[in-house]
Design a protein around this nucleic acid. Structure first.
Length: 261
DNA sequence: ATGGTTGACTTTCAA
């Protein structure tokens, strides 16, 4: 089972680039972030006609997550538990029915800028809710993949120019500590362990501004965290960097893992 | 220090 995450930065603007990537990526299931669409505005028929099961959790204008799957999805749940007053659409879970059942949590973690301020407070509160949900997912003792746009640069080597990010919500010590607190529950960072000795990168996001892509001025903020039962099934992982060079690209590229499931 | 770009949606915010 090949599982991917892709922040598409607007489904309406990205329908062609996403469709083209899906045609060549050989993925069984992909979680999407920043669909920037309400559920009714998502081009569901376009993807279901191509053989995808479609589950969305959208909102008007911003945020929004979705799952496209060639395999059946069961027990879909929308929204991150822990705050009934939170109306931002950033989290969706489902169980993918492959040779083995795999629980997926697709997430779009708050950006948190500017710092300080209510947006950063919201980011840290959201991460604490995610930590609690992640512990529950580990208690399932089944293959779980928690993946998406985490909006956190884990380490200095995950940025081309870490000095640019020292005051940014994506790289502040509190943000990185909150991510580590989740990882240390027992999650495996699939992209990092592919080349644990890497001095720099791989990157998953390049800003549209200031020629960041052409200068390879990127950061790694899209992550796949695997429960121990999922990590035991991992056979391959990667970053589809070429997607950033296509026509009308998103500012993020897909990240993926293949499980023997 | 500033600026640079894109998307959704109206004119400005979010990233």
């Amino acid at each position: 089972m090949k599982i991917a995450s892709f922040n598409i930065n607007g489904i309406k603007a990205r329908i062609e680039a996403l469709t083209s990537w899906l045609a060549g990526a050989d993925v069984d299931v992909v979680v999407l972030q920043e669909i920037k669409s309400v559920d009714e505005g998502f081009p569901r028929d376009h993807f279901s006609d191509l053989g995808w099961n479609v589950e969305t959790h959208g909102q008007k204008g911003f945020n929004g997550v979705a799952i496209l799957s060639r395999l059946p999805l069961e027990d879909v749940s929308r929204g991150l538990p822990g705050d009934d007053s939170d109306e931002q659409a950033r989290y969706i879970e489902a169980t993918v029915m492959g040779d083995q059942a795999v629980r997926l949590a697709g997430l779009y973690l708050p950006n948190g800028n500017p710092v300080p301020g209510p947006k950063y407070d919201y980011k840290l509160a959201w991460m604490e809710r995610l930590r609690k949900r992640a512990a529950e997912l580990l208690d399932l003792e089944m293959p779980v993949v928690m993946l998406g746009d985490y909006n956190v640069i884990p380490e200095a080597r995950d940025a081309a120019k870490p000095e640019k990010w020292v005051d940014d919500a994506l790289f502040l010590p509190q943000s990185r500590a909150a991510l580590r607190a989740i990882q240390w529950q027992g999650w495996t960072d699939a992209i990092r362990i592919r080349e644990p000795w890497a001095q720099r990168g791989p990157f998953t996001f390049w800003d549209y501004q200031a020629g960041a892509w052409n200068r390879d001025d990127g950061i790694r903020i899209d992550h796949l965290l695997l429960s121990p039962q999922a990590a035991d099934l991992m056979v391959e992982t990667g970053v589809d960097r070429d997607a950033r060079a296509g026509d009308k690209p998103s500012d993020h590229v897909p990240v993926w893992v293949r499980l023997a499931a």
